[in-house]
Design a protein around this nucleic acid. Sequence first.
DNA 1: CCAAAAGTGTTCTTACTACACCCATGG
DNA 2: CCATGGGTGTAGTAAGAACACTTTTGG
Lengths: 247, 247
Amino acid sequence: MQGHDPAARPPFAVTVDLVVLTVRREEMCALVVRRGSPPFCGRQALPGGFVRVDEDLETAAKRELREETGLADFPGHLEQLASYGDRHRDPRMRVVSVAHLVLAPDLPDPRPGSDAAEACWAPVSTLLDDPQRLAFDHHRILVDGVERARAKLEYSPLATAFCPAEFTVHELRRVYEIVWGVALDPRNFHRKVTGTPGFLARTGRTTTRGGGRPAQLYRRGEVPLLNPPMLRPDRAGQPVPADPAAR
Amino acid sequence: MQGHDPAARPPFAVTVDLVVLTVRREEMCALVVRRGSPPFCGRQALPGGFVRVDEDLETAAKRELREETGLADFPGHLEQLASYGDRHRDPRMRVVSVAHLVLAPDLPDPRPGSDAAEACWAPVSTLLDDPQRLAFDHHRILVDGVERARAKLEYSPLATAFCPAEFTVHELRRVYEIVWGVALDPRNFHRKVTGTPGFLARTGRTTTRGGGRPAQLYRRGEVPLLNPPMLRPDRAGQPVPADPAAR
DNA sequence: CCAAAAGTGTTCTTACTACACCCATGG
DNA sequence: CCATGGGTGTAGTAAGAACACTTTTGG
């Protein structure tokens, strides 16, 4: 914070980029837009845009999210991820991007934003396969966002951000299985999440939407931390197990 | 990344701020400078400065660190912490600061940097006591940095970044105790760190610098993750236990 | 000898794993 | 009735907590 010589504070552009993750059709998906102008014209990219002089970083992230998804006040979770400011990450100029991570329930299909030629959900596995698929350094940002999301499921109630307001233990378990790419024992999982005080709140209602015996519907509880954490099994190369009840 | 209208990319200043932590004299300390110019003239602040147009963020952080500590290639750890960009965090202009976290062994007293009127180590407890003590939003940045450091000790070998190149199990345990503010059982701690393959590497040498029976000297091992993690006991209000062997 | 710190062994307890088993619904 | 998923019980195991005890130095 020293060095007040104006020459010592070169101008930067500051952007926010969004890693918006959801679970839909038994897959973890990310929101991507199709770029309509150079550089990387026609390539896919994470949604994002310039921060305005009169708005905070989180405000800018929420505004971009609203512009891309068309949702005024969306349910879900938003947090800062990290900043990316390599000298040549944008060939046009010096840009520092403050990436944010958003976890959302299965939203209605996004409405293309003003500048984005196209916005859609893309399976994360596809996006991660090819490091060149996304423009700029967005592949790295996506990798970091996905890893952050996976890690946070272990010790936080954030998996519920992928679920609708009311959900069954089965649906919550599917989130863990799909995001982590592992199979979890349904019975032990049930005991773990229902046995941790404050993690889930019963609504008293039940549903049979999964078939079989009616399941309790829960809402997210009030505890901010899951302790002891949910243990992530070794990812021993197994593909994501399919859910027979998958629609 | 949309919106290429030049009017849509207002100029920002980008800085790096540093949370440099060390353990010295049985206390966790942070590097602070005394500001020599307004705003907050005369107040303490975290070291930092403007990012130059031709350097990456991490390069800028390392440069600032070198300028403040006078060490060309310091031992320790540096990682990005988070970015702080509230509209009015700097009264002069719009600034986004990318904070970095540095964990260092007990270094020689810092050499005041070019722009800093004074640089010194201050106990973190003192700095955290008064939210107004540090300039700008540096109190918040420090809180976040300390919390990150505390969390990372649990599942990473980063506590060794606070130690000299060769250290005893006792010294490593004191790092955990001081950073966490808890007492740990020396015998269980010993079993844990020496029993986790790859966490520590024996040098074969011993030392009696703590008094008593000679202790093995270790170097940091090669594993990047401590699994299962070191469990942080409930901080039940006890003050940091003093080490009778404290110098 | 004693004090102090290093390091090992043993018991108790917690919490996860694996899996048998029963429950409640729809068709 | 049967299929399907919901939910409980229980035995085995991994690992932390607590603490008794032996080892090796300095004074």
